[in-house]
């Protein structure tokens, strides 16, 4: 945990590959979350896939990627947490409405105009009603939650903050 030397990550090859891999990972996670009503997966799986970008960057760049913005680190983390709170509230409203409304939003609007054919079919993206929106909300919440947990578990154990926690313990 305390290595003693500055943790600046791995070689530039790994950093470049991490940069290149971040976009396909995010795209694939978004695809899994959006197609949750057609294919295996859903908001939780897609959110977990996108949240691996945080672990990938922490493994590739080391803790210095957070220390570089150390003054604004806490505020950015709190911003992430607020986004998670907002997605959570949206999920509350949407899930309540979807529980009490019967096929809410299905074949109604511009995106949801397709009704699902019964039985075995090929699957259309716009046929899910409100379920893709709920998948995206859950995916956003899971992305923020797991990323914040990974960042907090792996990064915030050095520096002034751990001194404040440790100093409070020894008194």
């Amino acid at each position: 945990m305390k290595t003693g030397k500055e943790d600046t990550g791995l070689s530039p090859i790994v950093e470049t590959v991490a940069y290149l891999l971040a976009v396909p990972i995010a795209t694939f996670g978004f695809y899994v979350a959006l197609h949750g009503h057609l294919t295996p997966g859903g908001g939780f799986a897609g959110g977990a896939i996108v949240a691996t970008i945080a672990a990938l960057f922490l493994a590739a760049f080391g803790r210095s990627i957070i220390k570089g913005l150390h003054a604004k680190a806490f505020s950015s983390l709190r911003t992430l947490k607020n986004i998670g709170i907002t997605a959570f509230g949206v999920l509350v409203l949407i899930s309540l409405s979807a529980t009490f409304l019967h096929r809410f939003l299905a074949n109604s609007g511009w995106f949801f105009k397709i009704s699902v054919p019964f039985g075995r079919n090929a699957g259309q993206l716009g046929s899910g009603g409100i379920i893709p929106l709920m998948n995206l909300a859950v995916g956003l919440e899971v992305v923020m939650g797991i990323s914040l947990a990974v960042i907090l578990l792996l990064v915030i154990d050095e520096g002034e903050n751990s001194e404040s926690i440790g100093g409070g313990a020894r008194e």
């Binding site: 959570f88 899930s95 529980t99 096929r103 299905a106 699902v116 046929s127 379920i131 919440e141």
Partner: peptide, 27 residues
Amino acid sequence: TGSNNVVTSVVFDYRALDTLGETTVLF
């Protein structure tokens, strides 16, 4: 529910309050 995936329809429509509690636990 208008969903091809029956597991998704159970998670997000029939038992949506269960999922709400689950996300509350994670949060």
